[in-house]
Nucleic acid binder design. Sequence first.
DNA 1: ATAACAGTTGAATGATTGTTCAACTGTTAT
DNA 2: ATAACAGTTGAACAATCATTCAACTGTTAT
Lengths: 116, 116
Amino acid sequence: MNQFGCDCDMIHEEVVARVRAQMPEGDRFSGLANLYKLFADRTRVRLLWALAQEDMCVCDLAVLLNMTKSAISHQLKSLRLGNLVKCERQGKVVYYSLADNHVRDIFAQGFAHITE
Amino acid sequence: MNQFGCDCDMIHEEVVARVRAQMPEGDRFSGLANLYKLFADRTRVRLLWALAQEDMCVCDLAVLLNMTKSAISHQLKSLRLGNLVKCERQGKVVYYSLADNHVRDIFAQGFAHITE
DNA sequence: ATAACAGTTGAATGATTGTTCAACTGTTAT
DNA sequence: ATAACAGTTGAACAATCATTCAACTGTTAT
């Protein structure tokens, strides 16, 4: 470990200084990583995709993905805390839907990237 | 467990049938999840952001993020296997750069979502 | 040759995370 | 009241993953 807090020399001082100067304030990178974490699981991706097609209840989603209500509910909670989905109770049934259209845009871009 | 392979009834048969019919072939959801996994870590997000500013070598990136060459190199390998970055050796130094401009677009969208 | 430095690699470790299980709440119907 | 079903929750378990450490490769300069 050296003066820079790492185990090597800084080779291009000007480059590092320039990039560091453009770095955003605070810790916006963690927020960004946390957003992408919600898309970084096959089950959650399928849930979001399904809700991008139609609003659905927990049981329908469980049947669609061949998983238990519990597993689905746990993942929906993560998505709810991340403000990607919202829910509304009607009697015994809880209907989930996308929180906003941004999720659809992110999907479109993701699919575009992996199919090229 | 029932006929559907889950622990509940299908409440809206038509909805599930309709959504299932629109489901993409194969397992494109895993590919999508794997793409987002690469963005789902603070270190990798910062590496990608830095390389979106300028091409850099491993030592510069290590200094910039206050991390060891080894940790940086491991993460760069993941990004390389995911085709998000590429590298080129010039003498002792290995320069990394974004594989294409798609990464920049994904960043723009991500930042747009978390700052609203 | 050999020293010095940039970078890579594999195993090990600790932390994070997805699913299961069992127990629970809330609503509807008998 | 009570049974039945939709959904939630917390603990436990297994799997995944990021970082560390030590040993290694490749290139340059002496």
